[in-house]
Write a protein that binds this DNA or RNA. Structure first.
Lengths: 192, 192
DNA sequence: CGCGACGTTGATTTGCCTCAACGATTGTGG
DNA sequence: CCACAATCGTTGAGGCAAATCAACGTCGCG
């Protein structure tokens, strides 16, 4: 069943009792979303964390000129959200929408905090997740400022091969911080 | 006493019993470091997390051309480290050194994990810290790619006013991802 | 004192963006 | 099922933000 994917995901980090498992399951809600469907908008307060079962979501900002700047992709087995908004229940600064038709699990901020009280193990799991996310994010900052556009492209391809195959070029360009036109030129020059 | 600063820091997030406090204190080691003293080098495995009591540390990478790229500053009351290395006991990809003469507290990876077993509260504290660090890091990625050099400079000044006053211009330039020469030009144009 | 680190400035180059136009593909409503 | 719109990738011309390289003044410090 769909919820099992999340249980497996958590179990990879910490041990869960049968009780824990059914408790967690009871708080999850499955949701199907269609391509381009928006799940979170800027200034909105994010109540639920999103865990992707199938398909793919992305978080992004919209700049003055209307340009979408992708912050993160999340395909099967990944969490996504606006951490500031979720944690502090403040207005979000990110948008989140579906890149393809997707299935996701919702876990509310309130329920998660209740689960922490009941299961110190779960708190450990989310500590580890946050630490990993932070480390990856630090690495991305370094890469963003110290690599060229081509190097960032190759880096993305190597690190997320499955995403790389599915995503339109345009979104990859946005993620690595260049315009679609310039990515197109890079690829042309690469194969001449 | 110096260790109290860290206790206060933790107490801002979670409640600690007297027992907890003395247990934590027993694991801390105070260390004085001099300006430019290196605390962590690339490929080294980081055993201790660093909590700054006074002075200022920075983490950075060194690029092919020898250029130092600052990833993070940490002044009084901040943690700093190579999260990947610390968590997984893998070779670090960052250097850490002292910007000024500093005093820091060392907390070993192993001791911290033992403390987690004894104090679920502490695990909560570090979950919150990691989540905050991740959120801040995400925000920095957005700013890095979507703001101009001048805007990033003003952003830094506003967000870290105390650091801003102390740090040499060169290091601020490195942090916001430009050359010292270009920052110099920006400032000249700003005050004409 | 003399050296090294820092900030400044000029000249030149370059990586990447902007704007505009054009096929190819996708998808969608009539 | 076709026609038309929307989206995507591509290409060209031109422009700008920021890097590079080199030279020079200044200051703090050993």
């Amino acid at each position: 069943m769909k919820k099992q994917l999340l249980i497996d995901h958590i179990s990879r980090h910490v041990m869960l009792s049968k009780n824990d498992v059914s408790l967690i399951r009871s708080f999850l809600k499955l949701k199907k979303v269609r391509r381009r469907q928006i799940l979170l908008e800027e200034t909105e307060i994010q109540k639920n964390g999103f865990f992707v079962v199938s398909g793919c979501l992305k978080s992004y900002t919209i700049e003055k000129n209307g340009f979408e700047r992708v912050v993160q992709f999340a395909s099967s087995g990944w969490w996504i959200g606006d951490m500031f908004s979720l944690k502090n229940q403040e207005p979000a600064s990110l948008y989140i929408d579906a890149v393809f038709d997707s299935e996701i699990l919702l876990l509310s901020h309130v329920d998660l905090n209740n689960l922490y009280e009941m299961m110190p193990n779960l708190e450990r799991c989310f500590r580890l997740l946050a630490e990993n996310a932070f480390a990856a994010s630090q690495r991305r900052i370094i890469e963003t400022v110290s690599l060229t556009a081509l190097e960032r492209y190759q880096c993305f391809k190597k690190r997320y091969p499955s995403l790389f195959e599915l995503l339109p070029q345009k979104l990859i360009a946005s993620y690595i911080g260049i315009t679609p036109e310039f990515l197109s030129r890079i690829l042309r020059d690469l194969t001449n």
